[in-house]
């Protein structure tokens, strides 16, 4: 169960993040989760949205460089040690996390964690075997 994530190249120039977000707003796209990775020279805006294909088109039409890739979204108990228990599973099996970010929603009383793993396939299998709850595209739409 993986979900599509959109990455947007953001040059280190005034107003670029705002412009990207503005593009989404104009196209009536809802952002489910968002994070920014940055270096001293530029950033990468990562987004989980309500409609991936439409988002890519809107951003590309506005001149942004966009890429789609897969991430895993896991529900974790919204309590101390919640995230730790999930990471523990991966750690014990030596599956590296490339990056991770979290968000909370109103509809489930759990936190939701977005992860990109070095080995996506085995990571997914492993988490499922340990009964972790992975969200689907459909779940994301309903959040």
């Amino acid at each position: 169960m993986s979900v599509e994530q959109i990455s947007v190249f953001i040059e280190n120039k005034e107003g670029r993040v705002k412009k990207a977000i503005n593009t989404l707003a104009k196209s009536d796209i809802n952002i489910r989760a968002l994070s920014v990775a940055d270096s001293t020279k530029y950033g990468i805006l990562r987004l989980i949205v309500s409609d991936t294909e439409r988002t890519i088109k809107a951003l590309e039409d506005d001149g942004f460089l966009v890429k789609k890739n897969e991430v895993i979204i896991v529900k974790v108990p919204d309590e101390p040690n919640g995230l730790n228990s999930v990471l523990e599973i991966l750690d014990q099996n030596k599956i590296n996390v490339e990056y991770i970010y979290a968000f909370i929603t109103h509809k489930v009383d759990q936190a939701v964690v977005v992860m990109r793993l070095e080995d996506m396939e085995n990571g997914k299998k492993l988490l499922k075997s340990k009964n972790a709850e992975l969200l689907t595209e459909e779940d994301i739409k309903n959040l």
Binding site: Q5, S7, F9, A37, S39, Y42, I44, L65, Y99
Partner: peptide
């Protein structure tokens, strides 16, 4: 200028 071929979702890849 970056292009689709050169762009990645990870900083370390871009570097």
């Amino acid at each position: 200028e970056a292009s689709r071929e050169l762009f990645s979702d990870e900083i370390k890849e871009m570097e």
